[in-house]
């Protein structure tokens, strides 16, 4: 067990809508250790990105972090002042945004944009900042003299690399990659992932890898957290998720993913749709689609409980010792 770098405790983020309060993220808790890659998986709208934004305190009106604590090392972020956050962002935790195409300013040279981040956060000369920028570019596999280029001169994969270099600008210990490879071609995507993995090893980074691509995430993460409709439903080591998933949703997700090696596996879709999170009652949010749901699931909300060391799941079946077997 390494040192805990980030710990999220009972985080809840709600959005105000015309129809009421949308409980987009509720009671999410997990930790990330030093040098660990945590894969945060879920379908669109399940709250993955909201979690990431809440950690960095980037939630804006109509959203609000209503409850919970986020500790980065010893510092608490949710109650931190803007000035403190200013010091923490970039230098201790940074984010690689979803679409690098839009994250870069089209009218500035990429080198200047990376330098800007360094100059704002550290007291270094321009020359030192430029030198570091060149090192960073090399680190992500871009020729160091290309710092003079503008974003439009790069391809999608290259821009993504620039975004990674930028996230690393102040050598943070923790990086959140918010679907940063979605939309790239398979091979480019895997090259970016390979780069992240390399950097993680070299710099002992901790990474939260947010994605909806289950096979990709499971092959490089140490631990997996699965979210459904704003709740964390299961959090365990990758092996446990793949071979001993306890929550019915985790199992259904695995069953819905085609497998290249086992082509005969019949994939199964999950019936029904995701519930509307506006004014949702206290219940297991998966009960409408769950083949094992019983009375208790409709009226009570399951808590994330440790089902075996290091393996957490939020399901009543665990408590009631129900055997998870598909009867249909």
């Amino acid at each position: 067990m390494g040192k805990t770098v980030l710990s999220v405790e009972n985080l809840s983020t709600f959005y105000k809508t015309d129809k009421g309060i949308s409980r987009a993220v509720e009671n999410v808790s997990f930790t990330v250790e030093e040098g660990e890659i945590l894969g945060l998986i879920g379908e669109s709208g399940c709250g993955k990105s909201t979690v990431a934004q809440s950690i960095l305190r980037l939630i804006e009106y109509p959203g609000k972090v209503v409850k919970g604590k986020v500790f980065l090392h010893e510092k608490e972020l949710i109650s931190a002042s803007e000035a403190d956050l200013y010091d923490i962002r970039w230098s201790e935790i940074s984010v690689i945004p979803q679409s690098a195409m839009n994250a870069l300013n089209p009218v500035h040279r990429i080198g200047e944009q990376i330098m800007e981040a360094i100059l704002i956060h550290e007291h270094v000369s321009k020359k030192e900042a430029l030198d570091r920028t060149k090192v960073l570019l090399e680190l992500v596999g871009i020729d160091r003299e290309r710092w003079k280029s503008y974003p439009h001169e790069f391809s999608g994969g290259m821009k993504q690399r620039v975004a990674i270099a930028m996230a690393l600008a102040c050598y943070p210990k923790m990086i959140i990659s918010d679907e940063s490879t979605t939309g790239l071609d398979v091979l480019t995507q895997s090259q970016v992932i390979a780069l992240l993995k390399d950097l993680q090893r070299k710099m002992n980074l901790s990474i939260i890898l947010i994605s909806h691509d289950l096979p990709m995430v499971t092959s490089i993460s140490d631990k997996i957290a699965i979210m459904y409709a704003g709740k964390l439903v299961e959090w365990a080591s990758t092996d446990d998720i793949l071979h001993d998933a306890r929550h019915p949703y985790s199992r259904a997700l695995l069953d819905a993913t085609p497998d290249l090696i086992n082509r005969d596996k019949k994939i199964v879709s999950i019936p029904g749709t995701v519930p509307n999170l506006v004014n949702i009652k206290s219940c297991c949010r998966f009960h409408t689609r769950c083949p094992f749901a019983f009375e208790r699931c409709k009226v009570e909300e399951p808590e994330l409980k440790e089902v075996k060391p290091g393996h957490f799941a939020a399901c009543f079946l665990e408590e009631e010792n129900h055997e998870l077997t598909y009867t249909s």
Partner: peptide
Amino acid sequence: DVSVRAGILN
């Protein structure tokens, strides 16, 4: 989404 995709393919 993954959960819906399987249904369409089948």
